[in-house]
Design a protein around this nucleic acid. Sequence first.
DNA 1: TAGATTGTTAATCGATTAACAATC
DNA 2: TAGATTGTTAATCGATTAACAATC
Lengths: 215, 215
Amino acid sequence: MSERKISQAVIQRLPRYYRYLGELLESGVERISSNDLSKRMKVTASQIRQDLNNFGGFGQQGYGYNVKSLHGEIGRILGLDVTHNIIIIGAGNLGQALANYTSFEKRGFILKGIFDVNPRLEGVTIRGVKIRMIDELKDFIHNNEVDIAVLTLPKEKVADVTKIVVDNGVKAIWNFAHTDLNLPSDVIVENVHLSESLMRLSYNISQKQHMKEKN
Amino acid sequence: MSERKISQAVIQRLPRYYRYLGELLESGVERISSNDLSKRMKVTASQIRQDLNNFGGFGQQGYGYNVKSLHGEIGRILGLDVTHNIIIIGAGNLGQALANYTSFEKRGFILKGIFDVNPRLEGVTIRGVKIRMIDELKDFIHNNEVDIAVLTLPKEKVADVTKIVVDNGVKAIWNFAHTDLNLPSDVIVENVHLSESLMRLSYNISQKQHMKEKN
DNA sequence: TAGATTGTTAATCGATTAACAATC
DNA sequence: TAGATTGTTAATCGATTAACAATC
């Protein structure tokens, strides 16, 4: 099997294809050509075909792509056909918001536990999942098949917590803390740095201002 | 002045430089060479120098970069030296989490208003900012200099709200809704698609599984 | 001055787009 | 069969890395 290395640029785009195909599916569209899809998504048809052909020939000449089947294929490629057990560490505003976010569940991400250091939160329940103290974390990981740890805590606490999580076998981290993680190479991390996103927006705003001043 | 077009790749990295320089500044480091910084950030020194030289020669041969001054320069480039008035539309879990997020304020992003459709939330206050109903949105934008609208609402409501926001002159949107926005070309948008981020993590997890099976 | 390190040009690498033969 | 549209190769474009002269 051709296990070629897929570029990060392609992986970056994959969930977006999935989203658009999901919408097409919902609105009852049966098939779509790379050209039609390219217009909706504002990318080139060439790129769509190149991207998809990294994973296989999902289309058919003269016909295009079957929406339902392509949606399914990309879902499988993204690993959405298997369930992942997740825990959230840090039950502050963002942690609680993510815990309340039910649509993750629909995609197979099952919330197993929530952890915090604040004793006031102990026993509080979100969507039936109770908040536990960090000292229970180690045992909890051992007794539950935790696939993903979501870090929504202050950057000062990240190093200690990450060590517990990684030492006890969790292999994937969704990191919302405002710092980069130092991890063994076999642990996967996906960073969401919200403040950096806001700074990019800010950059683009001032950039536009400069443009205006020039004209 | 050389108003060369800066590539998205560079802009993407800029906030991360800012973060590292901020940390260095806090820990009292006075100067740093591109080489030392490259080791900390796990990028090439060449890339750092190339990136920075898009904006000016901030360094000094034989010395490196002055941490404080470079931090300041990048902050200015990112537009963090001016304040931005923001409103949050959609006071669900995520909207409230962002509203409670005080460190944005420190960077000059001032929360002016929060809006929702749910009458139960009317008058509820977050950090001294009260939640208003959507029908007040138009007037509010006119009476306050709103620079950025943060969209944290269900995708079904996005189109209508976006229209109000854009029609009344808001020029930048931080979009957390699970859909792409259709905007006039002079409106800036920065998307945060959390579910897509989670899918990328999921992809990388299954990818690793496949690798394992191969060996 | 000698050593260090930048700013910048040139070389390489990778990603995107264009083109078209294959084929449904 | 003729028309449409893919899969894929080749051409182009852009981003990253390497190299080194300039200079503090």
